[in-house]
């Protein structure tokens, strides 16, 4: 086993070990913390497909995270208030079933990523960063000014949605669902990176001109990667909303985009387990430093600055050494 594989396994095991310990010690708050880390990691795994594998620096992934959250909020809201949603002549009763909600979240965030990606990928470099940021803000302001689903106040869902055969109200079972989905996303991400598609994507990241010269359709490959990336982040958004039983425009805010990017970078760009390590570290810091000082984000800022300036491989790079 290579050193990177050992580090990856250690990261995965530690995320799994914390809630199991918490279950034994009867500390449900720790389980919630680990669930939060797993969900944020899932969002980071999504972004990492665009950012790490594709080199597409998107500062607007909160759009997909929030769309996933609102997909959960809207579908569950219609079920809990018994007000069917009319889509043309069709009547939709809403649902409290997680698999259906996930499907809606993945499809709607994928559709949004397809449109935003198609427009944004006409540009590159700094323009791409700013345009993804601006599209994220567009949805943020739309969510604030659209009154039907709570506007600025957000939308509360009173009971967590169900999953057939499991009791999602039990923290450890909900953690299990999130952990399993994170595992699935990591598997997809790894398979993607090793597939011909992933190789083409990596080639386009390293040199668009050369990738085009060997006959690759770079815009289409990048758009596909961006869409897949948005879908996974959207799924994370639906889970995040279910964890909090609340969705608000904050999930769409640009700070959220920045944070998702921070997970990826703290952990290590283009590393399969980078976002997992980054999100776990972020949640840990938030918990520990938040207990010490109200102004804990100053320390987070300092740490992030240090990582960017001096430790470019992030946490996984520091532990595992060498390039991927």
């Amino acid at each position: 086993m290579s050193r990177a594989a050992v580090v990856n396994a250690a990261i995965a095991l530690s995320i799994l070990a914390v809630p199991l310990y918490a279950l034994a010690a009867d500390e449900p708050f720790l389980i919630t913390l680990a669930t939060r880390a797993a969900i944020l990691a899932l969002a980071g795994v999504g972004l990492n497909i665009a950012l790490g594998q594709g080199g597409l620096v998107s500062l607007g992934h909160a759009a997909f995270f929030g769309i996933g959250g609102y997909a959960m909020g809207i579908v569950a809201f219609h079920a809990q208030s018994f007000t069917p949603l009319m889509i043309g002549p069709l009547e939709f009763q809403g649902s409290k079933s997680m698999p259906l909600i996930w499907l809606v979240a993945i499809l709607s965030s994928g559709a949004a990523a397809l449109v935003i990606g198609a427009l944004s990928l006409r540009t590159s470099g700094v323009y791409f960063i700013m345009i993804t940021l601006a599209f994220g803000q567009m949805l943020f302001y739309f969510a604030i000014s659209w009154p039907a689903y709570g506007g600025e106040d957000g939308l509360s869902i009173y009971v967590r949605n169900g999953f057939p055969g499991l009791n999602t109200l039990d923290p450890i079972q909900f953690f299990g669902i999130c952990f399993a989905l994170l595992g699935a996303a990591l598997w997809i991400s790894a398979r993607l990176a090793a597939s011909p598609f992933g190789l083409a994507l990596a080639a386009a990241r390293q040199s668009v001109a050369r990738a085009q010269a060997v006959g690759l359709n770079v815009p289409r490959i990048q758009l596909a990667a961006f869409t897949i990336s948005g879908m996974i982040t959207g799924l994370a958004g639906a889970l995040f909303a279910d964890l909090n039983r609340f969705v608000s425009p904050t999930m769409l805010s640009w700070q959220m985009s920045g944070e998702i990017m921070v997970f990826v970078i703290l952990g290590g760009t283009a590393r399969l387990f980078g976002p997992v390590a980054g999100a776990a570290l972020y949640v840990l810091l938030e918990h520990l430093l938040g207990g010490i000082s109200e102004f804990w984000q100053i320390y987070l800022g300092g740490l992030l600055l240090a990582v960017v300036l001096f430790a470019r491989g992030g946490l996984v790079g520091l532990l595992a050494g060498g390039a991927r």
């Binding site: 970078i265 804990w296 100053i298 987070l300 960017v308």
Partner: peptide
């Protein structure tokens, strides 16, 4: 230190500066 770096590093470092400035002013 960021001039020679790629845009991703610049985005992150200046995002970190926002956190430091905002919390510093709040403090």
């Amino acid at each position: 230190r960021l001039y020679g770096r790629d845009h991703l590093d610049q985005v992150l470092a200046t995002f970190a500066l926002i956190l430091i400035f905002s919390e510093g002013v709040r403090w």
